[in-house]
Design a binder for these strands. Structure first.
Lengths: 147, 147
DNA sequence: CATGATTTGATTGTGCGCAATTAAATTTAC
DNA sequence: GTAAATTTAATTGCGCACAATCAAATCATG
């Protein structure tokens, strides 16, 4: 290859893509006790922040569509973490709520963010800056995809 | 939620995870002409950099295992972009080589990195710093996962 | 009302992504 | 040389991820 611009090591997006998968792997042992996958853990984070929200709203917060969420939430319902029911105000919407087991799981998950941060080996300032860049790219790219 | 550490917006890893998916979406229209997915495009990048490498070596460069690569490479073989054959030196290894069509596709892909960078709206310095942080996290997390 | 557009969730089909297992080839030890 | 360990790719099974499509409910308009 004569030019450099196609070289893998120059691809900023590849590093994001690969890092996302590696980070997911890093969570795996931490999520074993909860018996959930990383995307399921994210769904729990949303519900712990605000219980009983629609699939639509959860998709908005996680940047995921219903085609991904519906089967995942069904698995979590089977596992006893949450239940789903049609909204009484709007029968088109499905509202997702935590079961007692799902609520109790928050205590179990309490230490996960600390354990994860420990493994990242980044100081507070570096982390803050990195997260700010990441969010900037996320918002910018998401906006591009919407339009 | 009384504490903040579980809040979704504080999760650095979530922003990486979501950004990776959004960036993949950004590539979609750019890859239409090549008729490949983003992971397939990454495989092509590797082969354009070095043709005829083993599945093992490709997995090493892309941080992917054979369970992911084998079926993907088969699809790309069916599409006429590459062919696979057992190594003559080591019959356990499968070597992946570009077809003429796969080689010619490099010209078509030539403008993709520029088009993508345009959409990221980042100046050169910002991009450089961001990629450096990303690579640092990738290497650090990957090392953790290996050990 | 009526009816057409919109919103929403479900369904379907395809493509990763990876853990676990299997099978084959090679390497190592003896 | 032969047996055991190792390396490697393939296979299997499950879980996202998303585009495309469909059906149902609701909303907007006249």
């Amino acid at each position: 290859m004569a030019e450099d611009h196609l070289k893998l090591e120059n691809q900023i997006c590849f590093s994001i893509y690969a890092t996302a998968r590696e980070v997911t792997k890093l969570y795996k042992p931490l999520l074993e006790e909860l018996n959930v996958t990383y995307p399921q853990y994210l769904a729990l984070l949303v519900l712990w922040e605000e219980d009983c929200i629609t699939v639509k709203e959860m998709g908005h917060r996680l940047y995921l569509d219903s085609g991904t969420l519906t089967p995942m939430l069904k698995r979590m319902e089977t596992a006893g973490l949450l239940f789903r029911e049609r909204s009484k105000h709007d029968e088109r919407s499905v509202v997702v709520c935590l079961t007692e087991q799902g609520k109790e799981a928050e205590q179990t998950a309490d230490s996960i963010p600390y354990q994860l941060l420990d493994q990242l080996n980044m100081d507070a300032e570096e982390l803050k800056q990195f997260k700010a860049s990441m969010m900037k790219v996320l918002n910018s790219v998401h906006q591009k995809n919407e339009s």
